[in-house]
Each structure stands twice: as C-alpha cells, then as structure tokens.
Amino acid sequence: MGRKRKGRPVSGWVIIDKPAGITSTSVVNKVRWAFNAQKAGHAGTLDPEATGILAVALGEATKTVPYITDALKAYEFMVNLGAATNTDDAEGEVIARSNQRPSDAELTEALHGFIGDIQQVPPQFSAVRVDGQRAYALARKGEEMALAERDLYVDELILLDRPNPDTALLRMVCGKGGYVRSIARDLGEDLGCLGHVAWLRRLWSGPFDIADAVTLDQIDALAKDPAIDQFLQPTELGLADVTQVHCPATSIAALRNGNPAQVIANDVDYGDTVWACSEGQAIAVGIYKAGQIHPTRVFVPSANVDV
C-alpha cells in the first residue's frame, strides 16, 4: 500500500514575482510549504539573480507544466558591452575586454541575426548535463567544456533603450530552452565588442503575466493560512495553448479512468493534442481520434480543502 502524501491536495498555479538572490527550486519549496501542498513544480527555471515570472504548479497543475514550458516567454534584460565574463552575466569574472562600441544602428542590425530558428551554445555555467554532471559543477572546478548547440526559436528581439555606449536594454520573446546569457554573449561577439547580461527580468510566460504575480513576502504573510488560496489560479490556465473540446457527462468517468471516450469538438484534426473540459474543469488531455480523446493525462477533481 502506497504511503499517503503529507499536506493538502491543493491544485492550481501560483504566479510568483521571483526576487534576485534565490533559486527557482527554493521558491517552489517555499510556496509548497506555505500552501502545505502535497506536490509542487515549476515551468521554466530562472537563474538565481534573475527576477520576474516564475509559474509554480501545485497538485494537478503539475500535469500541465510541459505546456507552459513549451510556450513563448518574454524577457527584458540589460547587456553590458565591452566585457565578457566566464558566466556570461555580471556575477562572473571578467575574462576579456574590448574598447569597441557599436552604434545603435549596428546593434539593431545585429539583432536581426538572432530572430527566427537559431542555434545557441549554453553558458559554461548552466544546468546542462555533461557525462552525468551539471556543467556549472564542472565549470566551478575550472573545466572548460565544448557544449553542444541547441535549437531555439526567437519570435522577437528588439532594442528598447541605449542608456549609454556601454549598455543596451533589450526585449526578447522566445520559445523553450533559451539562454538569455548566451544571446548577450553571442551578440557581443558578433559586434566585436563582447558582452554579458547585467540583469534579467521575465515579463510573461505563456498565459501568465507579471502584472498578476505575487511576491514571496505576500506568500510568507499568509503561510499556512486558509486565506492563502486567494493566490491560486486555475489548473486549466496551464492548458491555454492547447485546443479545448467539450466532454459530455457520459464520458467523464471513462476519461478519468484513462479510457478513450467521445467528446464534442470543432475544427480539430485527427492526431491533435486536446484537452476535455466539463463545466470549466479539466477532465483529461489526450490525442483526438475520430470523435474520441485517447487520454495521456487525467485530472483528479480539484479539492483545495484542508485534510
């Protein structure tokens, strides 16, 4: 017999405005503790010194994490021009300098080369695994690695401001797996001036916007208090980019048991990933085939009550 999970079977999304100086994992642990939640995860790691949107999933919402992870995300960041660091951000040691500075026009032109389907090499100090070890652990030992290029889709990369010749404020909208630090590094190299990230803030992630985020101070203030549930957003928001179909009452039990069942759908093609909804609540995610969903994930009805 399986061990009963400790805590509440609470489900939903908690959108945190992450401060600098704390890891994403620490934020998740704090939110889980404050909600006394049985299960928690997050969609898209932020570096410890980065700030902004960190979408924390509790309970059944963890089943929708992949759909948020795959969604577009927006970042605003400042690039320091004239120096490269070993971490590609301001936390690292300067390893090279340049007196060259691009004009605004040259900088804007260079940004065009980073839009669309590109490839980038992760920073040496990153969580990429190398022979079973994290790259940052090897980098801290002074080892230099030849990390493989990774595909990245960049929807937008624009110059917002040029406070002075040594800095450039940029905004980027990109897909899964992007390293903003790599963008700053590669941009500086292309311009011949070198560069690294001074600071970074995530503005939105999929359906979640920084305007709707709460702070860790707000979470702390209501920790273990039933009133903390006011910060929960619906599990279903994690499926905002997945096609929704209607689940009739006669299909609910079958889908929740992991069995194919009839749904009502419009403009859905055979083989599409869809999610079945009944009275606003997610029943299952699955593959649409000839009027049925073949479930890949099923959802337990939300409780969000003390146990």
Rank of each mutant, 00 (worst) to 15 (best):
R3V: 12
G7D: 11
G7Q: 10
R8P: 02
T23R: 05
T23C: 07
T25F: 15
N29Y: 01
A40H: 12
A40V: 11
L46F: 05
I53D: 02
A55H: 05
L58Y: 08
K63D: 07
V65Q: 07
F77Q: 05
M78H: 02
G82M: 07
N86L: 02
T87K: 03
E93F: 01
P102M: 01
D104K: 15
E106W: 02
H112M: 01
I115M: 10
D117F: 00
I118F: 11
Q119F: 13
Q120H: 13
V121Q: 13
V128G: 10
G132M: 04
R134N: 08
Y136Q: 07
A137M: 09
A139F: 10
R140M: 07
E144C: 00
M145H: 06
A146F: 00
E156I: 08
E156N: 11
D161I: 01
V173F: 04
V173T: 15
K176L: 02
E189K: 14
C193V: 12
L194I: 10
H196L: 10
R202M: 04
S205F: 04
A221S: 15
L222H: 12
A223M: 04
K224L: 15
A227T: 11
Q230M: 13
Q230K: 15
F231V: 02
L232Q: 10
P234L: 12
P234K: 13
A240R: 11
A240G: 02
V242Q: 10
V245S: 03
C247D: 05
S251Y: 02
S251W: 05
R256Y: 10
P260G: 12
Q262A: 12
Y270I: 06
T273R: 12
C277F: 00
Q281A: 14
I293N: 07
P295F: 06
V298Q: 04
V300Y: 11
D306T: 14
